[in-house]
């Protein structure tokens, strides 16, 4: 059975389309990523799937249940970690966990094995109020609370936004362990580097899904020729590249990336020549393989 099926799901707010006929499926035990910027419609998708928001059009099922008719069953079998910290700030770590266990008719002991790895890091602070925890710790507690009733599907809405790269890496390690326990995970993030950690990703922009693919296939399907270039003055480099016909250039780490339109003949020598003709000698140019970020930029252009 599919963990999630969204079928042409749509939502409007005051005549403005937030989610526009979105369709996708999440397999059991899969980590499925919704990748896109703020305002793309990710949170509305999450809220419809967790039965907190009624769709205007389209249908969706979670664990085989309909999001409109079977909301009670869905709420009992999914865990949801909203983008905003949503625990009780004036309850302690332990009290929060106890509370969520009780609400779902279970106990901390019953499903402790699911949260053990994460909870041991929180245990030294179990008597601290949730509001006094650091960002990384809050995030770990929220994940524990979303897991304590042993959900079949986990919904994580931007769990790593504003979190530093080290804590972000640790968080993704935790998600991979949960996947091993056959929990299906729908996760959203604005960080492109996290996309490669998902089994499949949907790129979302303006309420629409631009593409759905495994990260590797997304890269394989990138059809443009792509070069990287480097020069002593990055500002000038990007300015000069703007006038290289048939290409789009953008900053990429220490390099500029040059994406060549289909059918346009281009090679290293041509680019070097263009740079030299515009006063940038001793530049470095090479052909390079696309990353997920290049794919996304290409879809946005």
């Amino acid at each position: 059975m599919k963990a999630v099926i969204a079928n042409s799901l749509s939502k409007e707010y005051d005549g403005r389309t937030a989610v526009d006929k979105v369709s996708f499926e999440v397999d059991e035990g899969e980590i499925f990523g919704l990748i896109g910027p703020d305002g793309a419609g990710k949170t509305s998708i999450f809220r419809m799937l967790t039965t907190l928001l009624l769709p205007d059009n389209g249908t969706a099922q979670v664990c085989g249940w309909d999001v409109v008719k079977d909301w009670e069953s869905i709420r009992n079998s999914v865990g949801y970690m909203p983008g905003k910290f949503s625990l009780y700030q004036d309850l302690t770590v332990e009290e929060n966990l106890q509370f969520f266990a009780t609400v779902f008719n279970t106990s901390i002991q019953e499903n402790y094995h699911l949260i053990e790895d994460i909870y041991v890091q929180l245990e030294p602070f179990k008597n601290r109020r949730a509001g006094k925890l650091s960002g990384g710790m809050k995030q770990k507690l929220a994940l524990c609370c979303a897991l304590i009733h042993k959900p079949k599907v986990l919904f994580l809405d931007e769990p790593t936004t504003g979190v530093d790269p080290v804590s972000r890496k640790e968080f993704w390690e935790m998600l991979k362990k949960l996947k091993m326990q056959n929990i299906s995970i729908l996760v959203s993030t604005p960080y492109m580097d996290e996309a490669s950690q998902c089994d499949r990703i949907a790129l979302v922009q303006n309420g629409q899904i631009l593409s759905i693919d495994a990260p590797k296939d997304l890269i394989r399907n990138y059809q443009n020729q792509l070069f990287k270039a480097k020069a002593y003055d990055r500002y000038l480099l990007l300015e000069v590249l703007k006038s290289l016909e048939g290409t789009k250039s953008y900053a990429f780490g220490e390099y500029a990336h040059i994406s060549v339109e289909k059918g346009k003949p281009m090679d290293k020598a041509l680019i070097l020549h263009h740079l030299e003709a515009n006063g940038l000698s001793q530049a470095e140019v090479d052909e390079v393989e696309a990353t997920i970020e290049d794919c996304f930029i290409n879809l946005l252009h």
């Binding site: 504003g162 604005p190 500002y235 900053a251």
Partner: peptide
């Protein structure tokens, strides 16, 4: 942390403004 939460293309346009200011 000026660029949280925007798409990769917008983030780059933002950085072009930064380069220009520095220039």
């Amino acid at each position: 942390e000026p660029t949280g939460g925007v798409d990769p293309l917008t983030r780059r346009q933002f950085w072009e403004l930064i380069y220009e200011a520095a220039h």
